[in-house]
Nucleic acid binder design. Structure first.
Lengths: 156, 156
DNA sequence: GTTAATGCAAACTCTTTGCACATCC
DNA sequence: GGATGTGCAAAGAGTTTGCATTAAC
C-alpha cells in the first residue's frame, strides 16, 4: 500500500491518453467527471447524468460511447468497476481502493477499508496461490436496517 | 453443523414441495439433479446438460422452466447461486456453504472454506451491523497460473 | 376435476458491434 | 490529411412474462 498521492494528479486523463497516442475528447472528460461525481454509478446512471448535464437540446454522449469510454478509462487505470450481484456493474474513480458491501434486500452500498480482507487474502495466497483483487470484490449480505425489518415482520 | 448426513437426505425435494402444496415434476427433479452434478453451472449450462441427457428426440425442460425452477429450488433452500462477475450466475447444491474464488483472466473457479471470511464478517458486523452472506460471496483476482503467465509476457 | 406447471413465443434489459461521418492532432 | 472517436442502428447475450395446453394430485 501507500504510494502517497494526496489529491488527484493534475490532468492524468490527458497525460495517459497522449502517452498511448489516443485522443482527448469532450466525451471522455465528461464520462470521467460523471464517474467521479457519482459514486457507485452504473453505466445507465452515468448516461442519465450526462443527459441531464447536457440539458434539453444539448447533445450527450451516446450509450455506446459511454460503454467504450468506461472500458478505456479502466484500462488507463482511472476508474474501477465492481459487480455487486445481478445487473449492471458500478464504477467509481480509482483513487482509493476500497471494498464494497451490498445489502441484498435494499441494495444499499457501503464501503469498507481494503485491509478488511488482508487475512483472507493471505490465506488464499498461501493455500491456492490466488491473488485477491480487492477493488473488484463485493461482499453481499444484509444491512442492519433490513435485518431488523425482517425480524419484525411475518415470515410469509 | 452436523446433521450427520452422509450422502443426501432421502427426498428433500418431494418433502419440501409437499409442505408447500407444490408439485413434484420430472423437470424439477432433473434440474436439481443437474445442479448437483455440475458444480458452478450457469442456467445455460444446466439447460445444455438437460438437453444432452434427453438425447435427440427426447424432450428437455424449456429454458424458462429451468429459470423458474432454479428460483424455486433456491427458495426451497436446495440450491444456491453466486454472481462471479459479469455474465450469468452459477448455481450449486446448497449442502455445504462455501466461498467462491474466481480468476479474472481464465475464469477458473476455486472453492474456499467459509471460515476464510470469519474475521472480516466479525468486523463488518461490529462496525456496520452488516451480516455477510458467505454463500453469495465471490472473491475475484488472479490465479497462480495466470499470474505467472502475465509475468512472463510483454506488457503491451 | 382443479390447480399448478410447462412450453412456446414474444418482450425486455443490458451490452456490444459495424459502419459512415465527424473530430482531434 | 490521416487515424481515432462518435453516433446511430442493429444484433447479441441473458432473463422474464403471458397465455394456452398439459400434467400432478
Amino acid at each position: 500500500m501507500g504510494h502517497g498521492h494526496g489529491g488527484q494528479d493534475a490532468a492524468p486523463l490527458a497525460e495517459r491518453l497522449r502517452a498511448r497516442g489516443l485522443r482527448l475528447t469532450a466525451q471522455r472528460q465528461r464520462v470521467l467527471a460523471a464517474v467521479t461525481a457519482l459514486e457507485h454509478a452504473t453505466p445507465e446512471a452515468i448516461g442519465a447524468r450526462l443527459r441531464e448535464e447536457a440539458g434539453p437540446g444539448g447533445a450527450a454522449p451516446d450509450t455506446s460511447t459511454v460503454y467504450r469510454n468506461l472500458e478505456l478509462l479502466e484500462r488507463l487505470g482511472l476508474v474501477w468497476h465492481t459487480h455487486l450481484g445481478k445487473g449492471a456493474p458500478v464504477y467509481h474513480a480509482a483513487e482509493h481502493p476500497h471494498l464494497h458491501v451490498v445489502c441484498q434486500s435494499c441494495g444499499e452500498i457501503a464501503s469498507a477499508a481494503p485491509d478488511l480482507l488482508d487475512s483472507a487474502a493471505e490465506r488464499l495466497a498461501a493455500d491456492l496461490g490466488f491473488t485477491v483483487d480487492v477493488g473488484h470484490v463485493a461482499l453481499s449480505g444484509t444491512c442492519r436496517a433490513c435485518r431488523e425489518r425482517a425480524g419484525s415482520e411475518p415470515s410469509s
